[in-house]
């Protein structure tokens, strides 16, 4: 039907006197140009500061924020240390939540007894805002890494287990039948049919979980910590250092953005086989 789609993707050479840029560069430029509204807002911010519309005690100029960011990042390396703490806690919690979430989700989808045991538990606990349990976790696990990792683990576990369970439940019976008639045993059915078929769902769960992890790491560090980006932001606010505070916020949002983009790009690569992957 569409064996010619590859040909459509390549732009036809247009008769033009202009020198043509390499296709890769053009694509990259297009991607960057798509974010012009962001650039516009940032520009407006700088402009308003320069003409004195913003009080620098509340909103410092973007250029000052960037300068502070540069110093903290590459001269004193303080920011780097905070990033390492936040990123480390978030990744450990996320990795644990993903591992356990995927395993439990698959078991729920495949084993009736586990499904009927875990499903009501999830329904009951999932709506609880995880931050509400954080003070409790500090009582048990202290204000160090353990309580934060546990919080992120919980926050990531739920979206992933729910997505995985839905994905496994959604696997077309005929795919499984087809595999069994080709000689696949139940372990092979698991790895060659159930898992790949559920992957797009799992991936959607991972994306939600990752954003949750970012939210929870900053929030928990705002509440109680001695290092990390959340701590940096609240420390800057308490010491009346708005430039540093903005630098911290900017770092967090940039990290979230980059991580989400990377995950999306990975998803596009992994799910090229999907019907709806065409855009």
């Amino acid at each position: 039907m569409k064996p010619d789609s590859a040909a459509q993707a390549a732009p036809l050479p247009r008769p033009s006197s202009r020198p043509t840029l390499p296709a890769g560069l053009v694509r990259w430029l297009h991607a960057v140009a798509r974010y012009y509204p962001v650039a516009l807002i940032l520009l407006l911010w700088e402009l308003c500061s320069r003409i004195g519309l913003f009080d620098p005690l509340f909103v410092p100029a973007l250029s000052d924020v960037l300068q502070t960011w540069y110093v903290e990042m590459f001269v004193t390396h303080d920011l780097l240390v905070h990033i390492a703490y936040s990123f480390g806690r978030a990744s450990i919690g996320f990795a644990m939540g993903a591992t356990v979430g995927i395993m439990v989700g698959i078991l729920m989808g495949r084993v009736r007894a586990i499904e009927s045991f875990v499903d009501p538990l999830i329904s009951a606990i999932f709506p609880t805002p995880k931050l509400a349990i954080f003070p409790l976790m500090m009582v048990f696990l202290g204000i160090g890494d353990a309580s934060k990792i546990a919080l992120i683990f919980l926050g990531c576990f739920f979206p992933i287990v729910i997505a995985t369970y839905a994905g496994v439940k959604n696997v077309d019976k005929y795919f499984i039948w087809n595999a069994r008639t080709k000689g696949a045993n139940s372990r092979q059915v698991m790895w060659t049919v159930v898992f790949p078929a559920a992957m797009p769902f799992v991936f959607a769960g991972l994306r939600t979980a990752m954003l949750t992890a970012f939210l929870l790491i900053v929030a928990s560090e705002l509440i109680a910590a001695n290092e990390g980006l959340g701590y940096l932001i609240i420390f800057a606010q308490r010491t009346f250092n708005p430039t540093l505070m903005f630098a911290g916020v900017l770092t967090v949002s940039t990290m979230g953005f980059i991580a989400d983009r990377l995950l999306q790009a990975l998803g596009r690569r992994l799910f090229r086989w999907q019907e709806q992957a065409e855009r």
């Binding site: 595999a179 008639t181 060659t192 086989w273 019907e275």
Partner: peptide, 26 residues
């Protein structure tokens, strides 16, 4: 006992050749 099911039960996540190679792979 080879089976061909109704609506295209070949695996969309496998390339054509890996779909056909499925039985021998198993």
């Amino acid at each position: 006992r080879g089976v061909v099911l109704q609506n295209f039960s070949i695996f969309p996540w496998r390339r054509v050749i890996d779909n056909v190679a499925y039985g021998p792979e198993m």
